[in-house]
Amino acid sequence: MRAPIGHFDHAVPAPDCLDELVRPVADAVRDWRGTTPAERIVYVDTDPEWADTATFVEHYGKELLDLSANCVVVAGRRGGETTLAACLVLSTARADVNGAVRRQLGARKASFAPMDTATGETGMEYGGITPVGLPGDWPVLVDSAVVDLPYVLVGSGRRRGKLLVPGKAFAELPNAVVLEGLGIA
């Protein structure tokens, strides 16, 4: 199979390589319910040493910079309650944590979750967190610019490998909320 974007030596429909994915991501692909068929989610094998965005696009295609999104885990707090959520924004932007995220979560304060919380609660590796396979009760805040793309490169749950996902599929994830202006330059 040829990857729909980028220059990858190994690309395969995600349902055909569940063993390459961490359990929460594999379970989400196996149980996929969106209108976009799961077979359109593509797993590409990549070198974990090149996982950071700048290095990644040098090796796999400069056009990927505008087609990549980062998934970050945030913690919103109000009183003694903490709500964990995920934000998906283009890699050329940053999540508006103190504005859009805080308002959407109804939090008094919002910040990036500590690394051990993000990895422990998701079952994914730091630097590879993806919105596919997050805990089912988490809000998944998705910037509208991500949904508008035909394909988006995101983490696979590990630092090795990435997922290529049709942008509109992110709007169909459990608890997804598409927001204008979630990602800011």
Rank of each mutant, 00 (worst) to 15 (best):
G106R: 05
D143H: 13
V74M: 09
E125G: 00
E180Q: 14
P114W: 04
A185G: 10
V25M: 08
A176C: 08
D143A: 08
E63A: 15
R94Y: 13
G61A: 06
I129D: 01
D19Y: 04
V74A: 04
A51I: 13
L179H: 05
L105T: 11
L84F: 14
P4K: 03
D19M: 02
N70A: 04
Y151K: 04
L21Q: 02
A75F: 10
R160C: 06
L65K: 13
A176F: 12
G181P: 15
T35I: 08
V146N: 00
C17Q: 04
P24S: 05
P48Q: 00
A86D: 13
L21H: 03
T53H: 11
E39P: 07
T46Q: 04
T82K: 01
T55K: 14
R108M: 04
G34Q: 11
L141N: 02
D47H: 08
G76E: 00
T53M: 11
P150T: 10
V177E: 12
L153G: 10
A14D: 01
C87L: 13
A113Q: 01
M1N: 09
H10P: 00
G34E: 10
M1E: 14
L88F: 10
R78F: 00
T130P: 09
T122Y: 03
H59K: 13
A14F: 07
A169P: 14
M1L: 14
H10D: 09
G6T: 13
A3S: 15
E125N: 02
T92C: 00
V132H: 07
A171P: 13
R160E: 11
V177S: 11
A51N: 13
R40H: 12
T35R: 15
G133V: 05
V154D: 03
